[in-house]
Design a protein around this nucleic acid. Structure first.
Lengths: 164, 164
DNA sequence: TAACTTGAGTTGACGGTTCAAGCCTGACAG
DNA sequence: CTGTCAGGCTTGAACCGTCAACTCAAGTTA
């Protein structure tokens, strides 16, 4: 894998890629800006709170939450500290295995999610769902799943010394 | 915009959205990690250098480059300073209008792009293009364009006091 | 010519993310 | 027990992006 000529991108592939990059850059930025201005939380913080709110007992192990949020444990730990200082969650050792840490959504955290979700959902609809036909939306799901598979379940997202 | 019930996401919409978020998070991270490890540049830095390398005279106004990279002028300015300190580009006032600044790719910067591009293209192929059928790839282009339109051409990406 | 306005770009402070190192808990071996 | 090990999580420093304030060039007005 060195001096071989790579298959270059043809004009159509490149146009598609550039459009994709643009969306990849701007969609998270737009959602982030909207959440930030309307609720004072970042897109990522919302993801964390929403992830907890979906659990039946509103709690999850840090590692599970990191997997769900597709982020490193380190990033989640810093974020959890900030959310904890705002009173939206607290952390406690897992009573069944002290090596794990449970993040638990407080009542205030639950209220925050409930107050924030409608506006956020509306924005997701406006920028994504309503902008597409039903068929395109279905295609997007299949595309996303394929790409996620291609990236692989290699954590590699903060796993320090991943052997990849 | 207050007490009205929002149209919630049904199960299928939510699954699609979660898959999309996952891709949105992981694809840039994967490309970033690959570039970082193989070439020591970030995905964004590569975008900037590549953007310049595509111009016939290897130069562009900062604002033009920011538009292409879908980033704020501030971010580009900081990044340009770092790239400048590595000798990959330099900045100079536009001789035709002193209000603009031209970013110019140096020979070393050109070499960097040439050395980095093949591996990066291969990674884009591996994670995206080859993971999809030709039809899906075409769909992705249309989807990206629609979403980009929905986000709008509102800069809002670092335009300080955007009236949105 | 001077005062004002507009828009491109820069700067510094602040806050979030990454990276590498370390801590702590429980498992397993002697 | 007492090492030793593995893995989950945390911590602090360095790095990067954002935000608001600023500089500077050119056009506009009078």
């Amino acid at each position: 894998m060195s001096t071989e000529e790579p298959r270059w991108l043809d004009a159509e592939e490149q146009d598609t890629w550039l459009a994709m990059v643009k969306m990849l850059t701007r969609l998270p930025a737009a959602l982030d800006a909207d959440l930030q201005h309307t609720s004072g939380v970042s897109f990522f913080e919302y993801q964390v709170l929403a992830g907890l709110s979906m659990k039946s007992d509103r709690r999850a192990r840090m590692s599970e939450l990191a997997e769900f949020s597709a982020c490193s444990l380190s990033r989640l730990s810093h974020t959890a500290r900030r959310l904890e200082s705002k009173g939206w969650l607290y952390r406690t050792p897992d009573p069944t295995d002290g090596r794990y840490t449970l993040a638990v959504l407080t009542d205030a955290g639950w209220e925050k999610v409930v107050a924030t979700a409608p506006g956020h959902v509306a924005e997701v609809r406006r920028l994504l769902i309503d902008a597409l036909t039903k068929a395109q939306y279905k295609q997007l799901r299949q595309i996303s799943e394929r790409v996620n598979d291609a990236i692989g379940n290699e954590p590699c997202l903060g796993a320090h010394n991943a052997p990849c």
